[in-house]
């Protein structure tokens, strides 16, 4: 025990050892304290890609069906995948923030509530009026309003964390959403699946590279 303390007290043998210790310890701490964003982006990206992809295949433009499947399948698949993504995000967040306190933890908590309450208020509002619409437009309204909210939340997130690429992702989702709505119900699904889901996955790749770079050279 005393021996440990004596060893610990010793200065690093050389400046190179100091630098190595700093790098290794910062990387170890970073890895443990800040889990990869892939836990968030891959589930959501795949949910959009697959969920909206199924919508496009079953309820394509001009009422075409490219791949026959039960009418309920796309919605159930989308909601199921979104539900799974939500659980994964919540668990990953909890594990990351559970052992920390301070402004970052607060930001994360508030952001999570923004998603939850934002979607609650959106859902209640749309549910009230959507029956008035023809079926194709009902689906379009739900999808477009949801993507609009997600885009806005990502732009806000960019502002909160001073992250230009997160902001850019929000801009991308918003523009893609507008383009899809203008193109019409079937096309909107395709656009969101590929450009939206794909955008999320691409952003995940960007963050993964950023993280790997930092872990290799953390100082």
């Amino acid at each position: 025990m005393t021996n440990d303390l004596t060893n610990d007290e010793r200065p690093p043998a050389t400046p190179a050892d100091s630098m190595r210790l700093i790098r290794e310890q910062r990387a170890a701490a970073g890895r443990r304290l800040f889990p990869s964003q892939l836990y968030f982006l891959v589930p959501w990206g795949l949910a959009w890609l697959i969920g909206f992809g199924l919508f496009f295949l079953r309820y394509g433009p001009n009422d075409r069906t490219y791949l026959s499947m039960p009418g309920w399948l796309p919605l159930v698949a989308l909601l199921g995948l979104l539900g799974v993504s939500m659980v994964i995000s919540a668990v990953a967040s909890a594990r990351a923030y559970r052992h920390m306190a301070g402004p970052s933890a607060l930001k994360g908590a508030m952001y999570g509530w923004a998603f939850f309450l934002g979607f609650l208020s959106l859902g209640v509002s749309i549910a009230r009026v959507s029956d008035e619409l023809p079926p194709n437009d009902q689906g379009l309204l739900w999808a477009a309003a949801s993507v609009a909210l997600v885009g806005a939340l990502h732009m806000a997130g960019g502002a909160v964390w001073h992250d230009k690429s997160l902001f850019a992702l929000g801009v991308w989702l918003s523009l893609v959403n507008v383009a899809g709505v203008i193109a019409g119900p079937g096309w909107h699904s395709l656009v969101i699946a590929l450009a939206g889901g794909g955008g999320l996955l691409a952003f995940g790749a960007v963050l993964a590279v950023r993280r790997r770079t930092w872990l290799a050279e953390p100082v």
Binding site: N7, D8, E9, R10, P11, P12, S18, L21, I22, Q25, R26, A28, A29, G30, L33, F34, H99, M100, A101, G102, P103, S104, A105, P218
Partner: peptide, 22 residues
């Protein structure tokens, strides 16, 4: 400039201002 304390400081330096770890 002591191995253990350097490691402690390095680990804590990854936190943003104001953030704390248990």
């Amino acid at each position: 400039h002591a191995q253990a304390r350097l490691r402690v400081m390095a680990a804590l330096s990854t936190l943003d201002d104001g953030d704390q770890v248990t």
